[in-house]
Design a protein around this nucleic acid. Sequence first.
DNA 1: CTAGTTGCAAAGAGTTTGCATGGCG
DNA 2: CGCCATGCAAACTCTTTGCAACTAG
Lengths: 131, 131
Amino acid sequence: MSYKTKQSALILEYIRQNSDRHLTAEEISDGLKNEVGKTTVYRNLDRLCSQGVVRKYLLTDGKSSCYQYIDCDGSDSHFHLKCLKCGRLFHLECEHLSDIDEHIKAFHDFRVDTSRTVFYGICGQCEKERD
Amino acid sequence: MSYKTKQSALILEYIRQNSDRHLTAEEISDGLKNEVGKTTVYRNLDRLCSQGVVRKYLLTDGKSSCYQYIDCDGSDSHFHLKCLKCGRLFHLECEHLSDIDEHIKAFHDFRVDTSRTVFYGICGQCEKERD
DNA sequence: CTAGTTGCAAAGAGTTTGCATGGCG
DNA sequence: CGCCATGCAAACTCTTTGCAACTAG
């Protein structure tokens, strides 16, 4: 039902090695110069996305979609922090925050999808390096 | 530096009256049928956006941008809840959550921009009407 | 051999830009 | 009257689709 091709292996390897960043389809295609066509990148990302291996995001300011490999996910309730400046994505796992979604469910009658929810802001490093 | 035209007034009025929803440029253009061109909608939204009157969002699943009038914002720290099903946006103001950003700042070295951050999920009403 | 995969080219969708016209102040 | 705003059409960008060639199993 699914073949292992050179291209799909390259794509998966690439997003895995860059799992700390959001990647656009173009960045992936460029990162694998001349080895994988852009169409194939899109199709592979789609498949990986529906398999739950990759997550698709949309930038708040930009135009194109971003994709990111999911290391550690599943039933875990954890949020993401996305730096608007450097673009890095941080995993946020913390006792103090683990019950946010439960609280919102109980008191605000809203079931939060933590995997879709991203906190946007500025990370500590960028804050220091402000220019 | 900026004229009041019939069109810009119509656009502002429309998004104000729909400040509980995210609107696409097309919805606004359609809502004002034959009265404002789509180009003008885009240009007005851009201007309102840079003036801080309107906020631009990108759907997590969709393709087009959404815009929303900002009623009550500024220094206030409050989050938004966006229902992935009905598309409505809810304001989340709550003691229990008001210190989330402070906590993340203090313990996770990340300055959250609450105005940009949206919790995605399913609202109580849609949960009940599940079909 | 068969079915899934690739990649070019073309089609689509959303947004932006160029330019002549129109309207506010 | 001067300057900004409008809106059509065309350009652009990102993504998807059609189709023939290719390749893993």
